[in-house]
Amino acid sequence: MQTRLDKEIGFMEQGLRIRAQRQQVLATNIANADTPNYKAKDIDFNQAMKSALSNTGNNAGMSVTNSKHIDSSSNVLSQVTERTAKQNSADGNTVDMDVEQSQFAENALQYETLVSMINGTFKNINSVMQG
């Protein structure tokens, strides 16, 4: 049974998961800033969130009933796309450090915002229970 609280926390948990995975992709871009022929990658948060919600929202996603099953909702790395380069470089690398750094900072802030929202939800429940 899914309570209203589960839904609310679950929604934000999906967001956290996608933000964390996006952070990993951006870190890979930054680490490979000097690698020849490396193509910068990114996750579209909107798209990833939509598909994650459509997987879990109406229980269309496959449920994990065995330890050998793969949790379909947890992996958004399949949604990684290559970024289109604004300027071409001689070595074929498409990492734009300004873009990566700003996206990295923004993503970290969004992550912390979600954490604060989850905390706020718990605080609300606490205050209701304690009267």
């Binding site: 952070q23 930054i30 990295f104 970290a108 992550y111 912390e112 905390n119 718990f122």
Partner: peptide, 20 residues
């Protein structure tokens, strides 16, 4: 830049530990 990246991830993880 890589050090900064690592520090950002660390502060995100620490923030996550404050949930609840």
């Amino acid at each position: 830049t890589n050090v900064d990246t690592m520090n950002a991830a660390k502060s995100m993880l620490l923030k996550t530990l404050t949930i609840g």
